[in-house]
Nucleic acid binder design. Structure first.
Lengths: 110, 110
DNA sequence: ATATGAGGTTACGAAAAGTAACAAGTATAT
DNA sequence: ATATACTTGTTACTTTTCGTAACCTCATAT
């Protein structure tokens, strides 16, 4: 278990993106800012994990959290420039998936 | 927790790629076929998980396993066409990481 | 017969994910 | 004043996945 010669930035970035749900959340946020409940209802993720992931994305400088004191309160999550820079990544994954993932492929090996 | 309108292929592909270590393994295999021990020593992953991930990649049609009955036995893992098609994905992640991940960023929020 | 090297597997404790119930803040309705 | 509703989370608890280390198999070499 040594890691020699792996670019540490690549490794670090990969670790971030390879956390479960992160990619799908970013995919959604690339469409524009989203509220907590919008993300929750549009992704197969639970509130607990969504909350956790959004905090991580904030901490990583990929997304921002803005509170609008409407009633009831409205909170919008939005990508930063660093986050929007992930567009090509998401696009290339989608292109690969459209070409190579068969629709009935239910999920990776269980 | 509903998932409406998300392209199921994208979601499925994302789930595959977002499994821990999968990206780094594919990164290595893009450099050419690799033996089990080469992967194990060049990545910070344990034998148990490496074995598990390689089986998943095989099952997903992304990598192949070839046994050469040398002595001691030599087993090579190699990407299929579907696996090699992930080159743009890995490249775009690396480009993003080089531009946006700071070297001291140790790992995503703990 | 014992040792060596590659490629794993097994067993088990630790960490992360999934689920469901509940809580805080604010506004409107009674 | 009290109750109800809505959004955004949090807490408590169970299940799945990960990480570590010890062990196994097969083939040759000593």
């Amino acid at each position: 278990m040594k890691s020699e010669e792996l670019c540490p930035r690549f490794e670090s970035g990969m670790e971030l993106l390879s956390k479960r749900w992160t990619g799908l959340i970013i995919f959604r946020l690339l469409e524009g800012s989203q509220r907590f409940s919008e993300l929750e209802s549009s992704l197969p993720i639970s509130g607990r994990l969504l909350s956790e992931r959004l905090k991580e994305l904030e901490a990583a400088g990929i997304a921002t959290r803005t509170v609008y004191p409407d009633t009831p309160v409205r909170i919008e999550y939005e990508l930063t420039e660093k986050g929007r820079a992930l567009h090509p990544v998401i696009t290339s994954i989608r292109e690969w998936a459209e070409k190579w993932v068969t629709p009935d492929e239910p999920a990776p090996t269980k």
